[in-house]
Computed example of a mutant assay.
Amino acid sequence: MDWTSPLVWGQIITIWLMAAALGLDALSLGLGIGMKGIRKLDILKVSAVIALFHMLMPLGGMLMGGYISILLGHVATICGGALLILLGTHMLYSSLRSDESRSVDHRSFWGLMLFSLSVSIDSFSVGVSLGMFAGDLVLTVLMFGVMGGLMSVAGLMLGRRVGQWIGEYGEALGGVILLAFGIKFLI
């Protein structure tokens, strides 16, 4: 990989922005859990599992997207862009719908798995889209994992100190970023 190439840096910045957008969901849900009170050891445990899910989900999605790309050819780019638009729209809609309660007991095994899956499921769909575009697999998976873990730590820690309104805006911002990338891929 030629680190001086503008294309490489463009790919890194794009992947970082997508990872940050998907990590905002972990941040927003972490804020809610953090406001209820959480021990620092639990913060590390929850964040490590979220980071793992943020690596496994896009990896599975990228492998599936690569296969779909082989089957569909150029149509795969359009499908990937449309998928990102749908995902971004769904995240925006979910953030604006305030009647939903997202309370999960993070201390139980199944609660931790459900919480981690709920904040990482979007990464699978984005992974499918990225697999269609033949992006760098290792870079993408590592960056998604690091961002997911860091954003969950930030959310859980900040949740102990700030109000719930930030969580709603965080998920909305993530939706807007994915929507913008979906539109970019279609143009």
Score class of each variant (00 low, 15 high):
residue 1 M to D: 06
residue 8 V to Q: 08
residue 9 W to S: 12
residue 15 I to G: 07
residue 22 L to F: 04
residue 22 L to V: 05
residue 24 L to F: 12
residue 25 D to Q: 09
residue 26 A to E: 05
residue 35 M to T: 09
residue 45 K to I: 08
residue 49 V to F: 10
residue 49 V to H: 00
residue 52 L to R: 00
residue 53 F to A: 13
residue 58 P to T: 06
residue 59 L to R: 02
residue 61 G to P: 02
residue 66 G to P: 02
residue 69 S to K: 10
residue 69 S to E: 13
residue 72 L to F: 15
residue 73 G to E: 06
residue 77 T to R: 14
residue 81 G to M: 11
residue 83 L to R: 03
residue 86 L to H: 03
residue 89 T to F: 14
residue 90 H to C: 02
residue 95 S to A: 15
residue 96 L to H: 09
residue 98 S to G: 07
residue 98 S to H: 10
residue 99 D to V: 09
residue 99 D to I: 09
residue 102 R to H: 13
residue 105 D to E: 08
residue 108 S to V: 07
residue 109 F to W: 12
residue 115 F to E: 04
residue 119 V to R: 00
residue 120 S to G: 11
residue 121 I to S: 12
residue 122 D to P: 05
residue 123 S to H: 03
residue 123 S to C: 11
residue 127 G to L: 11
residue 127 G to C: 08
residue 130 L to K: 06
residue 132 M to Q: 02
residue 133 F to E: 14
residue 137 L to Q: 04
residue 141 V to N: 06
residue 144 F to M: 15
residue 148 G to I: 06
residue 156 L to S: 01
residue 160 R to E: 08
residue 161 R to G: 01
residue 163 G to C: 08
residue 163 G to R: 10
residue 169 Y to R: 13
residue 169 Y to F: 14
residue 170 G to A: 15
residue 174 G to I: 04
residue 175 G to K: 03
residue 177 I to H: 09
residue 178 L to Y: 00
residue 179 L to D: 04
residue 181 F to P: 00
residue 185 F to Q: 12
